[in-house]
Amino acid sequence: MVRMTPQGWPPLLIYRVEGEYFATADTCTHATASLAEGELEGHTIVCPVHWAEFDIRTGKPLCFPATRALDTYAVSVADGQLYVRRKSSIGSDEQ
């Protein structure tokens, strides 16, 4: 896992699991803790504060106390570079 804060973006957490890349918001939706301080168990990130769990592929909370999903981002690799996409306010992708 690597925590990044690109200019103009919220803090992100980039994961590599079984050769695939994933990206989510770094901030837990329950306790506003940095998930980078937590544990990655397969495709599950565990919050270091109250042990909320999220699926990094979908952002879906897997147990209480979290009830809101994490924002997720599309990740691609081209020419040795990692690209993370988010939706802009008009619906097009930004990189």
Rank of each mutant, 00 (worst) to 15 (best):
M1T: 02
T58R: 03
L13D: 00
E18C: 00
P10Y: 13
E94L: 15
G91C: 03
E37W: 11
R86Y: 07
L62H: 06
G8R: 04
H30S: 00
L13F: 01
M4D: 05
G19T: 00
G42W: 11
R3G: 02
P65V: 01
A31T: 08
T32R: 13
A69H: 08
T24E: 05
R16I: 07
I45A: 07
P48Y: 05
A74V: 12
K87F: 07
E53W: 07
E41A: 13
R85T: 09
G8M: 04
H43T: 13
R86E: 07
S89V: 12
L12A: 00
I14G: 01
T27K: 05
D26S: 12
D93W: 15
L35V: 04
E39P: 01
E53S: 12
F64L: 14
L40H: 04
S89W: 11
D79Q: 13
T58G: 09
T24K: 06
T44D: 11
Q7Y: 09
M4K: 14
G59D: 07
S92C: 09
S88H: 13
A66S: 02
A31H: 02
H43R: 08
V75P: 03
R68I: 06
T5F: 10
A69V: 06
V84K: 06
D93Y: 15
A52F: 10
D71V: 03
L12T: 00
P6I: 02
R85Q: 10
E94Y: 08
D55M: 09
E18V: 03
H30Y: 07
E39Q: 14
V49S: 09
S34E: 05
A66P: 02
L70F: 02
V77M: 06
R86N: 06
P10A: 11
Y73C: 05
W9S: 01
D79H: 12
V2M: 13
I90W: 15
T5L: 13
S34C: 01
T29V: 05
G19C: 02
D26A: 14
T29R: 09
Y83G: 01
V46W: 09
P10V: 12
R85D: 14
F22P: 05
A23R: 04
Q95A: 11
V2E: 14
A25R: 06
T27C: 03
E94R: 11
D93P: 08
W9M: 02
V77R: 06
G80V: 13
R3I: 09
G8A: 10
Y73I: 04
T72C: 07
T5G: 08
V2C: 03
P11Y: 04
G59I: 12
C28N: 03
F22Q: 00
V46A: 03
M4R: 13
Y73H: 03
P65F: 08
G38F: 06
S92L: 15
G59S: 05
Q7D: 11
L13G: 00
A78W: 12
M4T: 06
M1D: 04
T32W: 15
S88G: 15
M1H: 10
L70D: 04
P65C: 01
W9V: 04
G80N: 08
V75Q: 02
I14D: 01
Y15A: 00
A31Q: 11
K87T: 12
A69E: 15
Q7G: 06
M1S: 04
W51G: 00
L82H: 11
P65Y: 04
S89K: 12
